[in-house]
Design a protein around this nucleic acid. Structure first.
Lengths: 237, 237
DNA sequence: CGTCGTGTTGACTGCCATCAAAAGTAGTGG
DNA sequence: CCACTACTTTTGATGGCAGTCAACACGACG
C-alpha cells in the first residue's frame, strides 16, 4: 500500500495527463493536491453534488454508479488506478453525473475545481490527454448503447467479463482473475440484466471450463471461448 | 432555404460556440468555411473515415448512425440546425465514430480539422462552449444507457418521441409534429426494438388520442399522457 | 453457532422478437 | 390518368429469451 507521506514525483509522472511534464511541474501539482484514503464501500463523491473537486485514483478500484428514479442501479464504469475521475468540470458540468464508490480500500489525490482551468492552461499536454480520455469514455458509452440495443444478454455478459479481465485482470495459475470483489448483482448492473440470469450463465460457463467463480470472485480461464461467445451472432449462424 | 451566397455574419452569430465573438472574428471564421449542400439521403461523413473536417449544420436535419458487425443499425442521435458535428478531433479522435446522413436537404459549413486548434486558442468562449456540448452528449449517452438497461420498450419509445418533439417539433393545429421524415424503423433503431413493436405502440396510442401518425410522420397530441407513459414505472404501481 | 449477504436452481410467465401476409401510400413512367 | 413498383405500415400467430418469484444452499464473520 502506498503511504500518505510518500507523495513523490514518481507517483504520477508516468500517468498520461502528466507524462509530458517536468519534475518541477509535477512537484507543483502534487503540492496542490490533497491525498485521502477511502475504505471499501465509502462514497468518494455523490451524484447531483456540486462538483467542487476532481480526483486522481492512485490505488484501488472505484465503481461509478447511476441510480434511476425507481431505484434501479446501473454501473456506468469502473475506474482503475491512474485514472482521473469526477472531471465533470472538464466538460462544463457543475455537478457530478454519477456516484463513485470505493470497491476496495482506495488512495486518491484531489484538487479543487478551480485548479482545472490552471492545469489546462499551464501544463502542456494536460488538456490534450484529458480530452482524449473524455473521447474514450464517449466511445465506451456509445459502444454500450450499441450492445444494449442489439445484443443478447449472453453476449453482453461475456463482453463485460472480457473488459473487466482486460482492465483489471491478474494472471493466476488457472487463468485471469478479476482483481476486485464482484458479485452476480454487480455484473447484472453492468449489463442490464438480473442477478439470476448472470448466475445461470456463469454456472453454465463454469461447466464448460470457460470461467471459474466463487463468492465475489470471477476468473476467466478460456479467453478464446469467451470471446467466441461475445462475438457470436445468431443471424450469421 | 438559405443560399450559398448569403454567408453573412448573422448566420452564425447567435450559435452558442460563436455567440461571444466579435463580428470581425465571425467574418474570419466564415471566410475560412466552405459551404456545401447535401440532398436527402446523402452521407456527410462516414464511420471510420479519417476526420479531416468538422461541420456546422446550418439548415436541415442529420441522423448519426452506427452499424454493428452483424449489420444492425443504431441511431446515435439527431442533429438539428445550429449544431456542430463531426467534432471527433475535439476529443482526440482521428476518425469519425459514426456516419452522418442528411435526412432532408441540408446546408452545412465545414472547416479543415487543423483549424479546430486555432479556433480553440484564438476565439474566446469557443472551447468552453464546445466542451459544454461534448458534456451534454456524454450525459445523453449515459441516459440512454440507463434507459436501455432499466426500462421497458414502451417507455423508451415514449421518451424518444418526447425528445424528438422537443428538439425538432413544430406546433400544428393538432399538436406537435416532428418536422422531418421518420419511419417506424427509424424509431426502432433509436430505441433498440423492432419496427413491428413500434408500429403496435403507435397504433395503440393513436386509438387513445395520444399521437397521430402517417407515412413517415408522427405528431404528439397529448404531451401529458405521453410523459406519463414515459415515466410509468411498473414497480411503483 | 446463528445471521446476513451471496449464490443456485426450478417453475412459471410475459414481453417482445420473429415470421408471414396483406393493405396503404408515394412516386414513376407509360 | 392509371398501372406499376417500391417502400412503409398494419395485424395476426407463434415462440423463446430472459425476468420474476420462491426456496434453499453456501460461506463469511462476529
Amino acid at each position: 500500500m502506498l503511504s500518505l507521506r510518500s507523495l513523490d514525483e514518481n507517483l504520477i509522472s508516468h500517468i498520461p495527463p502528466f507524462r509530458k511534464l517536468e519534475r518541477v511541474e509535477i512537484r507543483e501539482i502534487l503540492d496542490a493536491a490533497t491525498p485521502k484514503r477511502f475504505s471499501a464501500g465509502q462514497a468518494i463523491f455523490e451524484e447531483h453534488e456540486p462538483a467542487e473537486l476532481f480526483f486522481l485514483l492512485l490505488d484501488g478500484h472505484v465503481r461509478v454508479i447511476r441510480t434511476t428514479a425507481s431505484g434501479d442501479q446501473v454501473i456506468a464504469r469502473h475506474i482503475v488506478s491512474g485514472e482521473l475521475m469526477g472531471i465533470a468540470t472538464a466538460i462544463g458540468r457543475t455537478h457530478y453525473p454519477a456516484t463513485a464508490v470505493a470497491i476496495d480500500d482506495c488512495l486518491v489525490l484531489y484538487w479543487p475545481r478551480n485548479l482545472w482551468q490552471t492545469f489546462v492552461e499551464k501544463y502542456d499536454g494536460f488538456a490534450t490527454e484529458t480530452y482524449k480520455t473524455v473521447g474514450q469514455r464517449i466511445s465506451e458509452a456509445n459502444n454500450r448503447i450499441l450492445e444494449l440495443a442489439t445484443q443478447q444478454v449472453e453476449q453482453r455478459v461475456a463482453r463485460a467479463l472480457l473488459r473487466l479481465a482486460h482492465q483489471s485482470g491478474r494472471q493466476t495459475g488457472e487463468g485471469i482473475e478479476i482483481d476486485f470483489p464482484l458479485t452476480r448483482q454487480n455484473i447484472s448492473e453492468m449489463t442490464g440484466t438480473t442477478l439470476y440470469t448472470v448466475s445461470r450463465l456463469l454456472s453454465a460457463w463454469e461447466k464448460q471450463g470457460i470461467v471459474t467463480s466463487g463468492r465475489k470472485k470471477v476468473s476467466v480461464i478460456e479467453m478464446g471461448k469467451l470471446k467466441a461467445l461475445a462475438e457470436f451472432d445468431p443471424e450469421t449462424e
